[in-house]
């Protein structure tokens, strides 16, 4: 989960956890956008991490990401962030980054960092 969705009006797809009855969806092939049937990140071994200090905001990673997993933040501090629910860890973003601003870090290590950050916010159980 990224920090950039909150309060920004961004529509970041989220895993839908409440149960659906066929009557909730089968009346057309039209459903409110922004829900994932399942996340798509389980096979990622490396995770791209963007260095906000050196990122120039050129959007090359955003354009090249084959899964559309790099999104604009619409904020001033950094141009883009990685939607880790979608990212498969292929590393194309790191390859195309002309500024060396993306590093691929070990997913296990990154998860520990996530957990520590969540704990600091009091969300330890859910992380």
């Amino acid at each position: 989960m990224s920090d950039y969705s909150e309060g920004k009006g961004l529509r970041i797809p989220r895993l839908r956890t409440d149960a659906l009855e066929p009557g909730d969806y089968a009346d057309s092939t039209c459903f409110p956008a922004g829900w994932l049937a399942e996340t798509n990140a389980g096979w990622r071994l490396k995770r791209p991490v963007i260095d906000a200090e050196t990122c120039a905001g050129c959007l090359q990673c955003y354009l090249y990401c084959p899964d559309g997993a790099i999104r604009k933040t619409h904020t001033d501090d950094v141009a883009v962030f990685v939607d880790v629910d979608f990212c498969k860890g292929c590393g194309i973003c790191k390859t195309v980054c002309a500024f060396g601003s993306i590093s691929m870090v070990d997913e296990g290590e990154a998860k520990k960092t996530d957990a520590a950050r969540a704990a600091a916010r009091g969300e330890g159980e859910r992380a």
Binding site: Y25, A26, T29, C30, P32, A33, G34, W35
Partner: peptide, 18 residues
């Protein structure tokens, strides 16, 4: 924004057709 004209696999397809 909606998701429209999407896929529905074996677990869901029959509901649409019914």
């Amino acid at each position: 924004p909606v998701s429209i004209g999407y896929t529905a696999g074996p677990a869901y397809n029959r509901y649409y057709k019914q």
